[in-house]
Amino acid sequence: MIEASAISIQAGQYELRRISFRIESGQYAVMMGRTGIGKTTILEAICGLRKVHSGIIRINGQDVTRWTPAERQLGYMPQDLALFPTMTVRRNIEFSLRVRRQPEVQRKRRVEELAGLLRIEHLLERSTEALSGGEAQRVALARALAGTQTAILLDEPISALDRQTRQESQQLLKEINRQTGVTFLHVTHNEEEADALADVRLLLEQDSQTGLIGIREA
C-alpha cells in the first residue's frame, strides 16, 4: 500500500502543496496530468529521491518519509529507463541483490525467475546497448522487480515504444501486476494506456483560480 498524506514538495519554480492519495496493495494505479505538472516529482518523492517539505509518505502502513531510497526498497523505472551501460543484462537485473549481498545461488534463481516472467532469458548475457526499445523496457522492469516486493513506480515507461510493442507491454505489465501482487504506480498521459491498465486513476490538475495543483481519483 502506498499512501501520501498532505505532502508538499518544492520543485524548481513551482510547488506541490498538500497532495494526498492512497493506493491499496496489489492495485495498478495510473497517475495522469498535463506535462510539467509534477507527476515525476511525486514519483521521486515516493521513492525518496526528492525531499518532502511536509506531510507523510507511508508504505504498507509504515512512515518512510525520512527514509533513504535504499531503505524504502521500492522499484523505480524512469522514463529513459537508465539501464547501467557498463553491465550486462544479467548484472543489471541482479544489481540490487548484489548490493544487498544476497548469496549467488539466490541471485541466480531470482534473475532466472524474473527473466522467465518477462521472457528475456535469451538476453541475459547481452550488453544493454544492444537491446531494442521493448527489450530495454523489459530489462528495466526486471531490474526494478528484483529490488522490491512492495511497489513499482513507473514514469511513462512505454510512451516511446511503437503501437504494437506498447500494447504488448501493457498486457505484460498487467500480467506481472496480477502474478506478483506488487503495487504499481504508473505515470502517463496516454488515455488508452490508462484504460488498459488502471484499477485506479489519479488525476493531477491545476486549479484555474487558485493556481494550486491538486490530485483526485478519476
Binding site: E44, C47, G48, L49, T68, P69, A70, R72, Q73, L74, G75, Y76, M77, P78, D80, A82, L83, F84, P85, F95, S96, V99, R100, R143, A144, A146, G147
Partner: peptide, 11 residues
Amino acid sequence: RAEDVARTLGC
C-alpha cells in the same frame, strides 16, 4: 538517472 535508480536499488 542511473545513479538515482541505483539508490532505489539499495546503494
